[in-house]
Amino acid sequence: MQKSNWVVGALAAVPVVAAAQSVTLYGLVDTGVEYVNRVGAAGHDVVRMPNLTGTVPSRWGLRGTEDLGGGLKSVFVLESGFAPDSGTSGQGGRLFGRQAFVGLNDERWGQLTFGRQFTMQFWSTIDSDILTSNVYGGNVLDSFRANPRADNAIAYKGKFGGVTIGGTYSLGRDAVSAPAGVNCAGENPADKSACRDWSAMLAYDASWWGLSTAYESMRGGAGAAGGLTSSSKKDDRWIFGGYMLLSQVKLGVGGTVRNNEGSATPHSQLYYGGVSYDITPAFNLAGEVYFLRFNNSPNKAWLEAIRGTYAFSKRTAVYITAGFIDNRGNLALSVSSGDTSSAAPKPGGNQFGTMVGVKHTF
């Protein structure tokens, strides 16, 4: 009888234990057709389906939590980026190239996680940069803005009232040799500084405005991309931004001051300002202007972008977006960050692009 009671009690406890754990499958698919003019020295046009981003990059993932009691939870995220035009994996072909981490979250003291995850540069710009990962946006002028992640990273983020603090430290920031990676694996006993990365953030959010600042420093290593071929070389960014909410309008401004010792023109500044307006509950119009300049160089670029989005529901929307870039000096940056294939204009040339697409969230 006692044994039967024990079995019944154990079986009754199973739903309670299961209910303490939650796992969610989520994702989005965002793609369409894009037109870009003045490609290359010959000035050809191209019509294509982008494989990197539309309004945002396509992805799917799993995230979960388990309640451990006393306000403590275990957490994990496994997130995969993919190219909707061909179905291939993004971030250099990795299965979970966007995020792959596990850790603990305490409702009082914040979250500590381990794995591949966003650096604080991502979290410091997500509110102030209106167009974020739009096919015509800041990623055009600084490609790391599209990939602010680090392998082998320890991360902490906590919110205390309106103040958020966070930091990451990577033992080897990116092991993938591909356009989406930087080929800097680190974790090298012979060179303990190689490919290390750290970032820190301080932010404040009120009910209708917010400010943030972050700093990120990336070390180089043997064979690393971007000219950082030695651990003695660094690529440092100071990031700052702010936003304001006014009825149906959101305003955002910010910038990045960069010192890249792997570049022939190491010192540069990127500034941006944008606005988003909900014309109706279903239709949003957003636009942004970006400016990039390199010190002691004629190289600079202006980028203007606009996007209109109509939401059929909370999950499905259609959009049309356009951008124009004006390169100066020897810069040959493409207006589009939507494809891994080159669509750059001639040095010093300008370029126009436009895209019509669909985004579905699940």
Rank of each mutant, 00 (worst) to 15 (best):
A178L: 03
R149Q: 07
G158R: 04
T213Y: 04
G186V: 07
V176E: 02
M201H: 13
G162L: 01
W208T: 15
C195F: 07
G167V: 14
M244P: 01
G186S: 07
L228T: 06
G220T: 07
A225N: 09
R219H: 13
R145N: 10
L171Q: 01
S199H: 01
A222W: 05
G227Q: 02
K159F: 04
S177C: 03
A194P: 04
Y169V: 10
T229C: 09
F240N: 08
S230M: 08
A190Y: 09
S232P: 08
A185L: 11
G227V: 10
A185N: 06
Y215E: 07
A155G: 13
S232W: 05
G167K: 11
G167A: 08
L228P: 12
K159H: 01
K157G: 14
G162N: 05
S230Q: 11
F160H: 09
G242T: 10
G220F: 08
I239T: 02
A185V: 12
S217C: 07
A190K: 13
R196S: 10
V163C: 06
A214K: 01
N188C: 13
L245Q: 12
A222I: 13
A225G: 11
N183R: 05
N183V: 13
W209L: 05
G242K: 05
Y156S: 15
R219Q: 11
D236R: 14
G166P: 07
N152Y: 11
G186N: 04
L171Y: 02
W209R: 00
A155C: 10
A146K: 12
G172H: 00
N183F: 08
A178M: 08
